[in-house]
Design a binder for these strands. Structure first.
Lengths: 337, 337
DNA sequence: CTGAAAGCGCTAACAT
DNA sequence: ATGTTAGCGCTTTCAG
């Protein structure tokens, strides 16, 4: 049986209150007794029962993380960063993968409530009223990660998607490209979608390119390689003179490159492709991806810190926080031929 | 404030025991009262406090998962499978990423104990006496995943590494290769390492190849692409006549292919490369990887089921369970030129 | 500085 | 079928 505070008290020859004190404010107990207690603790491998503490403190010292797709490498960095911050702050982490299924997400919120997580970081999904209502009813502090909400007052942390897309496309233009296509998310609920499209368009205009003539080259795909492959097919069937494509995810860039390769067109010699996220695989792919890096580790880390701030103070200093992206130049984009 | 059982009881005009009953054995409460209670539950978004229940049941209905590296895509499938099983069985899941750091792992075991997880699946690492002692002292049920222990009596579930390696190398031999190298894990604690080497060696012998003459071609790398890239460099500097390499991880295969590509040698025309795991990226890489697939989802799923069995019955039917691997033929391996 | 006792929210006897 | 009550293990007044 797990040792309880009574076992320790008995073994140390003190009352349970004394044991409790050495666990929580050691200096309030006289040296001699404290030593005896500590010895007993050691001997019995005693750890306070977290259920009992939870009952009293009404806190679980656990944070919840909701991600849409664990197979997406983007979240690996997020998770590492968040776990690191949790370790530092004394929280445990409970990760739930929703597979972009809203029923599942809702049910995980129930679980989080039942397990009394102290707060939730809600990653990359759109905050629907349905989610929001539940979260509010349960009064669970939330911060949004790589996402934000225009409808609701929720602290968020993300990259500046518009600016990032702008930089990517500007880079392409600087390389001499004009017929620049884009591959965005085929997801009405995408929150990063619209700003990235906006950044693409603005870069085009700023570069003296008639954006409206390129609109047909904006294709969409559903998160995965295969869909990007097909979207690339569609794109190049319709617009074979495209010389560069801006992809809003590294996996889209891979799908596009793979399609091109199958068609015998070489990247970057004939067509340039730029990705987004800088997942670990981006530096491994052939050719290595030129891409916009997101600071995933920091994003995860900061989200936990921010949530902690929200939990402890009831508010956050900065409501909508932005972290810096960065253009990583590798091999998949080159000057126009 | 979160609603308690008393709030519900008051609102429904019954005693708290009645509320407790409708939560736990509804049919033991008369229809009319049950309805009233259910309504109150609904209205107050009542969920029983899991701390209070935990205190009574001495169970958290939470399972812990220890993985060495969340950046390794291999674990994405594992996690999905395990979470799926957890949902089915009524458990929550707490995932901890050790980054292959033993101090961290030890500390996560403490956390798991403190949070009173009902059991732990311990993935891919060697079970050191240090870990084992702690786990035993805490009396936490454990099953090992993609790993096993020869020293300790711990249920495990994994693929047959020896047979899988054998099949991979046999396939290469069938393609006409003779000078077959291997790239294994550079990790003294690797548990899948030795059996895979054994499978490689046995396939060679069975194929009429003098295995001992090939021993110098067995190189090692440390889990990541970059290290495999370097190991490939070493390999081909020493043995330029190598025509095929069996890699014990898809990422090693990618590193090898990348190195080869940088040297201007084409895969599979000049050199064949075969991977292991069949991570999602294997089908996306250029060329697409021929590899040994591990049923990661099932592995994760079964590990949770097995752990559940261990928790509830105190034992498992099969101590060491093996799941089937499968050769996936794609593009990275071809006939010898 | 230390011990006794109340009570966190719930379940499970035990009565009725 | 339902209410009353005694804890589960711990923290925290409150006395002393």
């Amino acid at each position: 049986m797990k040792a309880t505070i009574r076992d320790v008290a008995k073994l140390a020859g003190v009352s349970i209150s004394t044991v409790s004190r050495v666990m929580n404010s050691p200096q309030s107990v006289i040296e001699s007794k404290r030593r005896k207690v500590l010895e007993a603790v050691e001997q019995l491998s005693y750890q306070p029962n977290s259920f009992a503490r939870g009952l009293i403190y009404r806190k679980s010292f656990t944070l919840g993380l909701l991600i849409p797709d664990i197979e997406n490498m983007y979240y690996a960095g997020i998770i590492r960063g968040m776990q690191e911050a949790c370790n530092k702050l004394g929280y445990s982490l409970m990760i739930c993968n929703t597979d972009r299924d809203s029923a599942r997400l809702l049910s995980y919120i129930d679980t989080f409530h039942e397990k009394q997580v102290d707060g939730i970081v809600f990653a990359s999904d759109r905050m629907s009223p349905e989610y929001y209502d539940k979260l509010s009813a349960y009064r669970i502090p939330v911060v949004m990660l790589s996402s934000h909400s225009d409808e609701f007052e929720i602290p968020s942390i993300e990259v500046d998607d518009e600016a990032a897309a702008y930089d990517a496309v500007k880079y392409l233009i600087g390389l001499g490209h004009q017929k620049i296509a884009m591959m965005g998310f085929n997801d009405v609920n995408s929150v990063s979608g619209p700003p990235r499209l906006k950044g693409y368009l603005r870069a085009l205009s700023d570069g003296g390119i008639d954006a409206s003539s390129l609109l047909g080259r904006v294709k969409h795909a559903a998160h995965y390689f295969e869909h990007a492959y097909e979207a690339a097919h569609e794109l190049f069937m319709e617009y074979p003179d495209t010389t560069a494509v801006f992809c809003v995810a590294d996996e889209f860039a891979m799908g596009t490159i793979s399609y091109l390769k199958d068609q015998g067109v070489s990247v970057p010699e004939q067509v340039s492709v730029i990705g987004f996220d800088n997942i670990r695989m981006a530096g491994i792919y052939i050719p290595k991806l030129t891409t916009i890096a997101q600071p995933t580790f920091e994003l995860g880390y900061r989200s936990a810190e921010k949530l902690h701030e929200l939990i402890t103070t009831g508010q956050t200093e900065i409501m909508r926080e932005k972290l810096l992206h960065k253009l990583i130049i590798r091999e998949s984009a080159g000057t126009v031929s």
